[in-house]
Amino acid sequence: MKRRTLLASGAAAAALGLTGLPALAQDAKTKVGFIFVGPVGDGGWTYQHNEGRLAVEQEFGDKVETMFVESVPEGPDAVRVMTDMALKGANLIFTTSFGYMDQTVEVAAKFPDVKFEHATGFKDAPNLATYSARFYEGRAVQGHIAGHMTKSNVIGYIGSFPIPEVIRGINSSYLAAKAVNPDVQFKIVWAYTWFDPAKEAEAANVLIEQGADVILQHTDSTAPQAAAQAKGDVITFGQASDMAEYAPNPRVSSIIDNWAPYYIDRTRAVMDGTWETHQVWEGIGDGMVKIGEISDAVPAEVKASAEALRDSIGAGETHPFTGPLNKQDGSAWLAEGETADDGTLQGMNFYVEGIEGDIPS
């Protein structure tokens, strides 16, 4: 059903915040809101989510109205922004960062007639769904290329926050690099931000000073690309979006988060009344994770093997976490041929054997 909200007064709005939104008119536009953790022009994570928003507009035309708020801090202020969006008549709200999880749960409980979707989280409700991508699959392809191309055998990784998603990415890329280059070492710098070009550039430069000639990042700006380009002999990979302006070198490939089909599908479900809560975790095979073009800076044989790995992961023939594997402390984790289960991956709080350093608490 298409819905429209009329907010008569401040008192009525406050009441709606406790009781949910009333039934809405059949001929109104469906309103879809997006809460973004960074600016839409970040070139990475938020940029790609906003591309999904624009795809919703293109798909449905004047049947929908989208709204967004960018650079919303993770924490209490997110409650205010989500509440305001619901009171403005949003029928569906996407909250697009892990740190919005508890705030999304809180606001969803106050607006039972609004549908909420939280990216990368694990808490749901009758009107709250979760969705994420298997980014670690793309990290394996990056690690494969990185392991082949490093000359110093030092690969740097810029971590955002020590949450399972980022730890999975570090482990996956390390294992793939180690599989093709037993001498590889990982250096990890935690930036404690999703988007801060100055901090990200500083992290990249620290890693380069430590001997890294390959930089992987789990932060959202293109600053590490620029730092590598200034250095001249360091390669990088686009994060969340293609960052193709830095191709063919230093950016030799990328992970692309393809949210558009999901956003279109879930908007359509609200419009036709079939929306239900769920927990979705899709990867290369589903098209939610894509590997950006591998540039000519990568040797042809490495490009071919990386594409073969991508296709094998997408077909379900290869799992980035396949035993025998130990945890960092040497304790057994996966037996020969055993693959990691989703529950362990979603809560991953340990490094695999071979990675040095501690995970910050």
Rank of each mutant, 00 (worst) to 15 (best):
G169T: 01
I256C: 05
Q210P: 02
I256R: 11
K178R: 14
N258R: 08
T236P: 07
I256A: 11
R268D: 14
Y174N: 03
A204W: 07
E209F: 04
T267K: 13
Q210L: 13
Q185H: 13
T222R: 15
A212D: 07
N205R: 15
V234P: 01
A226Q: 15
P182F: 05
A191Q: 03
Q217L: 07
S253P: 01
H218I: 04
P261R: 04
A269N: 12
A203K: 01
A260D: 02
Q217D: 01
K187V: 08
A203S: 12
A226D: 12
I170F: 03
E245G: 05
A201S: 14
R266D: 12
R266L: 10
D220G: 10
Q217N: 09
G232M: 10
A177F: 05
P261W: 11
T193K: 05
T193A: 07
Y174G: 01
A212L: 08
E209M: 11
H218R: 04
G169Q: 03
N258G: 01
A223E: 05
K187D: 09
P248N: 09
E200Q: 07
V184P: 03
Q185N: 14
Y263A: 02
H218G: 07
E209R: 13
I208Q: 07
I235Y: 10
I167G: 03
W194A: 02
D265V: 00
D265C: 00
I167V: 13
Y262M: 13
N205F: 07
I255R: 11
Q229V: 00
A198F: 10
A269R: 15
R251Q: 15
A227Q: 00
P197I: 04
G211L: 08
S241I: 00
A204V: 07
T193W: 04
Q229N: 12
V206D: 13
K199A: 13
R251Y: 04
A227P: 06
P164Y: 11
N205I: 07
R251L: 09
Q229D: 09
A240W: 14
Q229E: 13
S221C: 11
S254N: 10
D213N: 10
I255H: 08
M243H: 12
S173A: 10
I256S: 06
V184R: 01
A226E: 15
A269M: 13
L207W: 06
F195T: 06
G211P: 04
R268H: 15
P248H: 12
Q185V: 00
I255F: 11
D220C: 07
A198W: 10
Y246L: 03
Y262N: 10
Q217T: 10
V214C: 08
T219C: 09
A260H: 07
N171I: 03
L175A: 05
W194F: 11
Q239T: 12
P182Y: 04
R268A: 15
V180Y: 08
P164T: 10
P197A: 07
K231W: 14
A230I: 06
D265Q: 15
A226H: 12
V189N: 08
Q239R: 09
N258V: 08
V214F: 12
N181K: 03
M243R: 00
S173Q: 02
I215A: 03
A204P: 05
I255W: 10
A176T: 03
Y246N: 05
V189E: 05
R251A: 14
H218C: 02
D257R: 13
D183I: 00
A230Q: 10
A204I: 02
T236V: 08
S221H: 13
A269E: 15
P261V: 01
A212W: 09
A226W: 10
I170T: 04
I215Q: 08
K199E: 04
T222I: 13
V189K: 01
P182Q: 09
